[in-house]
Nucleic acid binder design. Sequence first.
DNA 1: ACACTTTTGGTCAAGAAAAGTCAAAAACGG
DNA 2: CCGTTTTTGACTTTTCTTGACCAAAAGTGT
Lengths: 149, 149
Amino acid sequence: MGISDIIAGFIQQELEEAGGALELQRSDLAQRFNCVPSQINYVMSTRFSPEHGYIVESRRGGGGYIRITRVQVDRQTLLMHVINSIGGTLDHASARAITQNLVESEAISRELGQALLSATGEQALHSVAKEQRNTLRADIFKQILIHSV
Amino acid sequence: MGISDIIAGFIQQELEEAGGALELQRSDLAQRFNCVPSQINYVMSTRFSPEHGYIVESRRGGGGYIRITRVQVDRQTLLMHVINSIGGTLDHASARAITQNLVESEAISRELGQALLSATGEQALHSVAKEQRNTLRADIFKQILIHSV
DNA sequence: ACACTTTTGGTCAAGAAAAGTCAAAAACGG
DNA sequence: CCGTTTTTGACTTTTCTTGACCAAAAGTGT
């Protein structure tokens, strides 16, 4: 087991104790585990990405920090389920149906639902050839959902 | 947390109590927080700028002051302004800058800002030819904003 | 009125304190 | 052996702090 796993484990434990949100300093962590600071970035991007159910915010400069927040599981699993169920293409009618479901089950806000439909509507995609639209629509749709977690 | 954050927090609290407008003295503040006066200018320009929704006026000389007024911009006109200012194409860096401005001025929520960037990011658009992306990005960006009003 | 002094606030640039990026090198699994 | 994941470190960018010097408004004495 490499150092990345050890660091990830430590963070998860801390997160547990802190109840889901945690603020730490990159250089501190690096020092504690005797690794280069950029290792922390690696751990963040491979194990605490939105896809994994975490939000990571940070700030540079004096007093900088890295804040990790674990996102609600219910919502997350539902969203992941939806994301995975969307294949490589998505037609407009399906997009509408899925969005409506998500909004009604309160997995996403009405506002975000509107954004999903706006971003993947015919108006937005009209410059792209018809045969390409459903592929693109799937990509955009999934990207928005992934990053909304 | 650095001193800038502490000062900003203090001012915001005072602003709250005073109902949105506040007059203070630079040297007083500096003394209270034990920092150089120019630190106050730094806090003003980084946290109470117009983009953050504040107007700051000041006067030098005897009885000088710094007056901070919280102002709420009309969301709709600001959005329309932005939408109109976006031409037929939009590169990723500009999209990021505009989004950040909108979020910071509270014209859109952080969530919608994230959606904007997700929908117009390289990830989402990778299936489309590079030469087409900036056009498409502009379309998507505008559609989301238009329907968010 | 006018010149001088005092009292404020403004600007800018240097340096320090973080965090981010990216790609090469190393380690690992099949 | 080959492809993927991990580890490192050189270089970049952002944010914050400090201090020296500048500019304006008010006060004061003539």
